[in-house]
């Protein structure tokens, strides 16, 4: 494991919305590199472009201009289907509102990325999901539907799901945003553990300066520019 291996590299990324005169510039020339194993906080006031940047890094949105490289390969010329495949392979998402699929149990939600990658459920996937849920402390909640879990528990399931395919990079958008302080601390601790145990790179969008302070690196975005 070399410390300098770049998981993702953004070069002069611009993003503007709208066309025909009325345009809103959201990102102004972002240069950002995330090295393997980094645990980075992305902070900034509302409207600074944090979510847009996260979506662009997550390959959910295309930049207006600029280059994005995921593990050394440029993504600019990839088709929608190819982007979807890279997303499935290289990226895990943890959303603020956890976004589990209510019709499926905790176990099945964690299996979902694996099932999507392999086309069908297998017993190996089940074992992997059990292992992940045990790791996030939900060994006794495997067959619970999301509706029967607390906010913190749901977010743990979401983290387990993000880890399912063992992606090199996990993007978390306000993962503790709607949790109380105690639960937020727990979740943060869990993310940090995963980072240290597996060397997974994290980019965490947060409002909470307390949490940001506990990250190894802080990137601050103001008016679409990186200031630190």
């Amino acid at each position: 494991m070399t410390e300098t291996k770049a998981i993702i590299q953004l070069t002069d990324v611009h993003k503007q919305y709208g066309s025909d005169g009325i345009t809103t510039k959201v990102l102004h020339g972002i240069d950002l590199t995330l090295q393997q194993g980094e645990f980075t906080a992305l902070i900034g006031p509302s409207g600074s472009g944090k979510s847009t940047l996260l979506n662009i890094i997550g390959l959910l949105e295309q930049p207006t201009s600029g280059i994005i490289e995921v593990q050394g390969s440029k993504t600019g010329l990839l088709s929608e289907d190819e982007l979807t495949a890279v997303r499935g392979r290289s990226l895990g998402f943890v959303f603020q509102f956890h976004h589990l699929i209510p019709a499926f149990s905790a176990l099945e939600n964690v299996m979902m990325p694996l099932m999507l990658a392999q086309g069908r459920p297998t017993s190996a996937q089940r074992l992997r999901a059990e292992e992940l849920l045990t790791r996030v402390g939900l060994a006794d909640r495997l067959d619970f539907k999301p509706g029967k879990l607390s906010g913190g528990q749901q977010q743990r399931v979401a983290i387990a799901r993000a880890l399912a395919l063992n992606p090199p990079l996990i993007l978390a958008d306000e993962p503790t945003g709607n949790l109380d302080t105690a639960a937020a601390d727990e979740i943060f601790k869990l993310l940090r553990e995963v980072n240290q145990d597996s060397g997974t790179t994290f980019l965490i969008v947060t409002h909470d300066p307390r949490l940001a302070g506990r990250c190894s690196r802080v990137v601050e975005l103001v008016d679409g520019r990186i200031v630190t």
């Binding site: 959910l60 929608e80 495949a85 499935g88």
Partner: peptide
């Protein structure tokens, strides 16, 4: 929302 999550997790449009 479910469709969005599935798409983010690598589910293709065709699927």
């Amino acid at each position: 929302r479910e469709v969005g999550i599935l798409r983010a997790m690598g589910c293709s449009r065709r699927r």
